[in-house]
Design a protein around this nucleic acid. Structure first.
Length: 110
DNA sequence: TCTATGACTTGCG
DNA sequence: CCGCAAGCCATAG
């Protein structure tokens, strides 16, 4: 059974619009759990929900959280590109996953 | 209780 | 751009 924290994190991840990305720290913050980026990561590592847009969750610097030679990396970048996200060199271009421009991501800018 | 580990973050050089 | 150190949080042994 999930806790509120878990549910909120999952909700925050599901709330990421298609073609958009967010950082672990951002998701945690959005879930009301600042500083729990690692918890978000741990959740994703054990998630079993195929409908969860885990591929939209990136590191704070906009990089994919997997080594470039891993399967997960390939799949994630492929999924992102399929959504129209510009991925290059294992990094997402065109938008910011960091909290510095949270307004751009969640503040209502589209 | 303590240590180790991890899909993390930030800062310094 | 790259590597390293310190911080931080939850779980496992």
């Amino acid at each position: 059974m999930e806790n509120d924290a878990t549910a909120r994190i999952l909700a925050a991840i599901r709330a990421i619009p298609r073609g958009r990305v967010a950082g672990y720290g951002e998701v945690a913050r959005r879930a009301g759990l600042p500083g729990r980026a690692r918890m978000v990561a741990r959740l994703l590592s054990g998630n079993d929900d195929p409908a969860l847009p885990w591929h939209r969750v990136l590191r704070s610097d906009g990089r994919i959280a997997f080594p470039p030679d891993s399967d997960a990396f390939t799949e994630q970048s492929a999924r992102l590109r399929a959504e129209g996200v510009w991925v290059e060199g294992g990094r997402v271009r065109g938008q910011r996953a960091a909290a510095t421009l949270d307004q751009q991501l969640w503040g209502g800018v589209d």
